[in-house]
């Protein structure tokens, strides 16, 4: 009897510690951060609620506004260019070429690096004094100029370059899997009917791998919103604070400037941004499952 009950609840029992830990360390601390954002906490947490003061102060920071604009630039380009590059690479790799396994590994490999490594390498490559620009000068191209990383107006685009380099391999893998999972008969039929390659891709292939687009967008978007280490390694938010992103601003407020309330408010703004993207995704993912049960 007891053994039966044990057997029935075994999986629940095994999952319980993880569930409890997640409840406390993820949702518990999200709740705590949310609470903090409504207090006047500076160096140490205080628990007296004072309303939306921290949010009002947050939006007065010029640096916060810079980091929001940067997130929009970085986020849209990182996702857009990342998708295009990944898709293009996937389509090219899908042409039944030789050494595909090797090439796939090469493209996927940057994903194995941490953003810190990527950031440091690109920092060196793009530094006009030691990197690409200097190399071009040495081989005789004296007029070559590529100083984006030290230009406050353009530095954010160098972060996009490094970010896309890092993540396009992952996007490639997602798209390649989707392309391979397609029903080849449809393509063949379209081909028989005399459709051009462009028509086939535009009219048949791309629509049928829509779910892959969705996954890739979600993955890239949340990477963009929480970006921190890549920027820290590449520019440390500079020149000035021209490449500040919300996560860096949050760290700076909470840990460097003894402003826990504003830091928490920043974290909540970021959470809301991620939720605005993830929740519709979860909703659309979970709905078919529910209807299948019903």
């Amino acid at each position: 009897m007891i053994r039966q009950a044990f057997g029935r609840h075994l999986s629940a029992l095994i999952l319980a510690p993880t569930a409890a830990a997640t409840l406390v360390f993820v949702y518990g601390f999200i709740a705590w951060t949310a609470y903090m954002s409504f207090t006047g906490s500076r160096m140490m947490p205080v628990y007296e609620l004072i309303g939306f003061d921290a949010y009002t102060r947050l939006w007065q920071f010029e640096r916060w506004n810079v980091s929001i604009v940067n997130l929009l630039i970085f986020g849209s380009l990182f996702v857009g260019v990342g998708l295009l590059t990944g898709l293009l690479l996937a389509i090219l790799l899908d042409q039944r070429i030789r050494a595909e396994g090797l090439l796939r590994t090469i493209y996927l490999y940057p994903m194995a690096l941490s953003f810190i490594v990527t950031g440091t390498v690109w920092k060196w490559l793009l530094n006009p004094g030691i990197g690409l620009e200097r190399a071009m000068h040495q081989i005789g191209w004296e007029n070559f100029r590529f100083g984006w990383i030290v230009d406050p107006e353009l530095a954010i685009y160098t972060i996009v370059i490094a970010g896309v380099w890092q993540s396009s391999g992952l996007v490639l893998a997602i798209f390649l899997a989707a392309l391979r999972g397609m029903d080849q008969d449809v393509v063949k039929a379209a081909f028989m009917d005399g459709a051009s390659t462009l028509q086939i891709y535009w009219g048949i292939v791309l629509p049928s791998i829509r779910p892959a687009f969705f996954s890739a967008v979600i993955v890239l978007t949340h990477l963009a919103v929480k970006s921190f280490d890549l920027v820290i390694a590449m520019t440390n938010g500079g020149p000035g604070y021209a490449t500040d992103l919300p996560a860096i601003f949050m760290y700076s407020m909470s840990f460097q400037r003894n402003n826990i309330a504003v830091g928490s408010a920043t974290a909540m703004m970021m959470l809301c941004t991620v939720m605005a993207i993830i929740v519709p995704y979860l909703y659309s993912e979970l709905r078919p499952a529910r209807s299948a049960h019903g």
Binding site: N127, G129, V150, T235, N236
Partner: peptide
């Protein structure tokens, strides 16, 4: 007065 490459 600083060089072009001073950032960071």
């Amino acid at each position: 007065y600083v060089d072009a490459n001073f950032s960071g």
